[in-house]
């Protein structure tokens, strides 16, 4: 009967990765307030992504692209079509991975309670409540006209080993995310062709929530 927990920093990293992809940090100062005003908060948002990963010790960068959706009440669909067809679906109750139509991983909230937290953080951030990020990062916002950029740097040494720096930029929507990991690996994601409302709901990815 020992009640001590087994701490899992990995879940943290997972959560952070997720939230970093879609969200930006906030601070109650003028710049952050303006950034928040600028960002649209649709119920559903779909678009294209292009991802470039540069891993230390690898000659070529790894490119992937596809379409994605983020819905307030349903979760996230990340559908890559290149270099191969794969889907990651994060809903309230589970994370499901599919490779060319076959489910390769399914993790439920029941088994891993952190998933719910991950989702909730993402959604709260999309809704414009970015304060949770400040627990882990120093946040530096900047804004010019309708474009903004937010720099995040890990506060904690342990976290710095995993995610050192993150940079998020955009206008009405998040357009660009760069993640630098402690070991030197880099990930860059660029979003484009963003749709909202009915146009978003009509996409193939929107149908994948079911």
């Amino acid at each position: 009967m020992k009640y001590t927990s087994i701490f899992h920093p990995l879940l943290f990293r997972c959560a952070l990765l997720c939230l970093l992809l879609y969200c930006l940090p906030a601070r109650a100062d003028g710049v952050m307030a303006r950034i928040q005003e600028t960002i649209a908060k649709p119920d559903m948002l779909c678009g294209q992504f292009e991802q470039k990963k540069t891993l230390v010790g690898m000659k070529k960068p790894l490119l992937s692209s596809g379409r994605f959706c983020v819905a307030q009440d349903k979760g996230i669909v990340w559908h890559a079509t290149k270099p191969f067809d794969s889907t990651i679906r994060i809903t309230k109750n589970e994370i499901v991975q599919q490779y060319q139509g076959d489910t390769t991983m399914r993790m439920s909230t029941e088994k891993e309670p952190a998933i719910q937290t991950i989702n909730r953080i993402i959604f709260s951030l999309i809704a414009g409540d970015f304060s949770p990020l400040e627990t882990y990062f120093n946040v530096a916002p900047a804004m010019t006209k309708n474009n903004w950029q937010v720099q995040l740097s890990a506060r904690d040494a342990g976290l710095r080993k995993a995610i050192d720096k993150v940079s998020v930029a955009g206008d009405q929507y998040v357009k660009n995310i760069q993640i630098e990991e402690g070991n030197g690996d880099k990930t860059q994601i660029v979003f484009s062709a963003i749709l909202t409302g009915e146009a978003a709901a009509a996409t193939r990815e929107a149908a994948m929530y079911e």
Binding site: W78, A80, P83, I88, Q97, N183
Partner: peptide
């Protein structure tokens, strides 16, 4: 499995570098 892990931005937790 390995490729999914490599390309996915939110593929669940991982321990350190993919390599």
């Amino acid at each position: 499995t390995s490729l999914m892990k490599l390309y996915s931005p939110v593929g669940g937790p991982k321990a350190g570098a993919w390599q």
